[in-house]
Design a protein around this nucleic acid. Structure first.
Length: 561
RNA sequence: UGGGGCGUAGCCAAGUGGCCUAAGGCACCGGCUUUUGAUGCCGGCAUUCGGAGGUUCGAAUCCUCCCGCCCCAGCCA
């Protein structure tokens, strides 16, 4: 994934994977002349980075083989689905950089067809209405090692089934009173084939069809047929659906469909220190452990966006980790590396002081202000520059000063000379403490000859630190983040909520920013030199500036201590 | 003797019988450069592919057995 120059224009390489091989083979053998894939989210929550893997896979495949990728909302369960989620999904897929054009569909668009196909199955004696309760069905299903038993309602006549099913449809029964089941094999080793439920009664308002229906198809009954309607050639899903494939195929074979799609499975994404289950993410939101689906600590697409992660970095990450069928947990550092790699090239450099300590330069003229030139992107020879005000009173980072420096500490200390980035060499002459012994300010002197940061006499300085003019600094609140979960694999805990990191968010008040940061745009991530990457939070206002830490710079602790 | 999958370095992952004494990325470890202890650059990092047998002139790739891990008993998706 080399993106040395201009990430956005670069064509992302995708490493070979087994699905690509299958498609290449399918095309070579003439099974398809072009392909169609689909991304089928259920609108019952926000998209997370696990979905990004599926999105990238499906859209990239379509693009690379000159096919199409549909966006299909899999809305077969009105109890859980909401319009808010539909809107958020559209926004997130778009932000990630994919365009489904006019190919936006809803499984609910096919309710009518699905219903008719269910009647066809009844007529073909391959489906029946069952009066067993949910508990009874479970009981009759048997166990993993013992076969199930046939429902006593399994042999109703076609006429009776048809009438019952129509009455289900017209609202004659209460929720759970009856279901439509496929008649397959109650002793199959695959539980999905033990007469799976096809339709259930749900008297519930659907976000799109309203109260038009009170029976809804299950995932199994809807998915393959929807794929067939859309003429999806490769229906790609995650590993846990592998056991459903025989049912998928059974339905495709036993219903008159416009095409015969095939299902392929890959392993879902897992990340260390992260939870990627919509159910669990939902709990974090509903229990107020985070501020919302787009909390910058959330692994959601919207959370990453708010955090300042570039869409490119997410795509790059997905391309790097590859696609396979083995269960895996990717180290979060791999994602972070992509974010840093992109931002290192793209982000403008700025200066900000998180935990300020005042520095007064005694030999600098009172009331004098100089405008010093600073480069926006030091690694870019064509970089723009900006002017930064410099004065007698400055702020530097508290941790850039040590009263009793260790051997490897080469920043400011009593009697030590360091460089203020883009400015002058200063030497610490005196420490002023308050009554509690806390350092209040540092008295320093500067060398006027070192303007710009170089000494004409060629003397070197070991450290360079960042600073902000006290008079010109703008005040801000800065949010520093740590992993939301303490352990590498939060789901291994009895209760994942016990593993929530109590220090995942630190709000720093009274931070000092260089003046030009006043005009930051939301989501334009900048680098605060020597600290990390930051972006303006969406909740910031003109008089209450808030920056989110996107990610810190790498730190070489070996050298530092 | 339920069914379905997976096992290549710390983490992902290429590889489909000979050019594999096994790509690439992340992580890690050295060195150089550096007005960000960042970046960049250079170098190192599996004689070995879950294990044991076998087939073959030749196996990570084929066969057999064994071991380990994951998924399935929602009228969720």
């Amino acid at each position: 994934m080399s993106l040395k120059s201009q990430p956005d224009e670069i064509i992302e390489d995708k490493s070979p994977n087994f699905i690509r091989s299958i498609i290449t083979e399918d095309i070579r053998e003439g099974r398809h002349s072009s392909i169609t894939t689909r991304f089928p989210p259920e609108p019952n929550g926000y998209l997370h980075i696990g979905h990004a893997k599926s999105i990238c896979l499906n859209f990239n495949l379509a693009q690379d083989f000159e096919g199409k990728c549909h966006l299909r909302f899999d809305d077969t369960n009105p109890i859980k689905e909401e319009q808010e989620f539909i809107d958020a999904i559209r926004e997130d897929v778009t932000w990630l950089g994919f365009n489904w054009g006019i190919h936006e569909f809803f499984t609910s668009d096919y309710f009518e067809k699905l219903y008719l196909w269910a009647e066809d199955l009844i007529i073909a004696e391959k489906a029946y209405v069952d009066d067993l309760s949910a508990d009874e069905i479970r009981e009759y299903r048997g166990t993993l090692t013992e076969p199930g038993r046939k429902s006593p309602y399994r042999n109703r006549s076609i006429e009776e089934n048809l009438e019952l099913f129509r009455n289900m449809q017209s609202g004659k029964f209460k929720n759970g009173a009856k279901v439509l089941r496929a008649k397959i094999n109650m002793s199959s080793g695959n539980l999905n084939l033990r007469d799976p439920v096809l339709y259930r009664i749900l008297h519930s308002e659907h976000p799109r069809t309203g109260s038009q229906w009170c029976i809804y198809p299950t995932y199994d009954f809807a998915h393959g047929q929807s794929d067939a309607i859309e003429r999806i050639t490769h229906s790609i899903c995650t590993l846990e659906f592998e056991d459903h494939r025989p049912l998928y195929d059974w339905l495709v074979d036993n219903i008159q469909l416009p095409s015969k799609p095939k299902q392929f499975e890959f392993s879902r994404l897992n990340l260390t220190h992260t939870i990627l289950s919509k159910r669990q993410l939902k709990r974090l939101v509903s229990e107020g452990l985070v501020s919302g689906w787009d909390d910058p600590r959330m692994p959601t697409i919207s959370g990453y966006r708010r955090r300042g992660y570039p869409a490119y970095a997410i795509r790059d990450f997905i391309n790097r980790i590859g696609v396979s069928k083995s269960n895996s947990i990717v180290e979060i550092q791999s994602l972070e590396a992509c974010v840093r790699e992109y931002l290192n090239q793209k982000a403008l450099r700025r200066m900000a002081v998180l935990r300020p300590i005042k520095v007064i330069i005694d030999n600098y003229p009172q009331n004098q202000v100089e405008e010093l030139r600073a480069i926006d992107k030091p690694n870019d020879p064509n970089s723009s520059t900006r002017m930064i005000p410099f004065g007698r009173e400055l702020y530097i980072e508290r941790e850039d000063f040590l009263e009793e420096p260790t051997k490897k500490f080469f920043r400011l200390a009593p009697g030590r000379e360091v460089r203020l980035r883009f400015a002058y060499f200063i030497t610490c002459q005196k420490i002023i403490k308050d009554s509690n012994g806390e350092i209040k300010e540092l008295r320093c002197t500067y060398d006027p000859e070192t303007k710009g940061g170089n000494a004409p006499d060629g003397r070197k300085v070991k450290g360079t630190i960042h600073w902000v003019s006290a008079e010109h600094a703008i005040e801000a609140e800065i949010h520093q983040y740590d992993y939301l979960f303490k352990s590498e694999n939060p789901s291994e805990n009895e209760n994942f909520l016990d593993d929530v990191n109590p220090n995942s968010l630190k709000k720093l008040l009274g931070c000092k920013l260089e003046p030009c940061l006043k005009d930051s745009a939301i989501s334009a991530t900048v680098q605060f030199e020597r600290l990390g990457y930051y972006c303006l939070d969406k909740a910031a206002t003109a008089d209450h500036i808030i920056f989110n830490q996107t990610i810190g710079l790498r730190e070489n602790m070996k050298k530092k201590t």
